[in-house]
Nucleic acid binder design. Structure first.
Lengths: 160, 160
DNA sequence: TAATTAGTTCGGAAATTACAGAACCAACAA
DNA sequence: TTGTTGGTTCTGTAATTTCCGAACTAATTA
């Protein structure tokens, strides 16, 4: 099953994965660049990258790296560590970012719930087709929320 | 708790909800227009809207309505019914689109799984920080898949 | 002090997207 | 047959997004 790859081939494939991640992220609402940076920090063997290394490896401008990286830090997707006596920042993917991810997801679902609940209240005929459809939507959203709770309990109970 | 609103006020609020839905959809990857159409077909008391009525109510061009509506039909968000001897199509929201919704969700999760599994295989050191991070991601994705299965069993078992 | 490093910020080019307008078409009605 | 209804399709444009280059800054080094 597992064929043996040379290091060169392996690294080539990792590079391809980075590109694939860029495309996937791009279609999922994010930017190609942010996807590629996530991919770079996740899929390569190297564990930490400096600003300069990201620029070199992905061949994108410093300005793009700067803005994208700051956005990724803001959204808790990556983080950086520093070493004494070294001015550089060493970027790496953030591991315990699932809580933040869930938080954002919840916020969005809550907005949907709010809008749909209000819509249901405003319905003249609560038994109408559209009213029932809204109820069904609310049911789905509630289930979704429940699943997120379960996830939190299962995976994040011990995290700080 | 539930204050009594006049019909005028109620309808005014429904209109506001339609706008809010437009904004929410826009920020969630879709277009403002598609969100507004979904809102119109869901939140108003009227159960079905003709092409012309959508144009009039939302004050958007026929071309935009045409393209947006066809896209919404394609993605199973809305549908239309017809009446004998009437050339018009009557658009309404589609109710049981949860199966489709799950399907799309699964497809996306599967892509993420695929890319992450491959990335893990390609890792030189399977115990490295990044490798562990990928494993954690795969764990989360598996959990979500499981939850979706549960959902399907619980809510969609009897649907055709 | 001057030069280098590690970035940030500003302005704009290029590409993409979201719409509108107008011409068009097919079905039916007068 | 001519007009009307119910749209579709094509073209253009305004807005938005994504990215780059260049000028800038703050910290460190020579």
């Amino acid at each position: 099953m597992q064929e043996q790859l040379s290091d060169v081939e392996r690294i080539q494939k990792q590079r391809e994965l980075v590109e694939a991640m860029g495309r996937l992220t791009n279609r999922g609402g994010g930017t190609t660049l942010s996807g590629r940076i996530i991919g770079l920090l996740s899929f390569f063997d190297k564990e930490e990258f400096t600003f300069e290394e990201i620029v070199e490896e992905l061949k994108i401008s410093k300005s793009s790296v700067s803005t994208t990286i700051n956005h990724l830090i803001e959204t808790d997707k990556i983080e950086y560590i520093t070493y004494p006596g070294d001015r550089k920042r060493y970027f790496r993917i953030k591991i315990n970012n699932r809580r933040k991810f869930l938080q954002d997801m919840r916020r969005h679902v809550e907005k949907m719930q709010k809008i749909n609940r209000l819509a249901l209240e405003l319905k003249q005929d609560k038994e109408s087709r559209t009213a029932k459809s809204i109820s069904a939507m609310l049911e789905s959203l509630a289930f979704f929320m429940e699943q997120m709770d379960n996830y939190e309990k299962k995976f994040l109970a011990d995290e700080v």
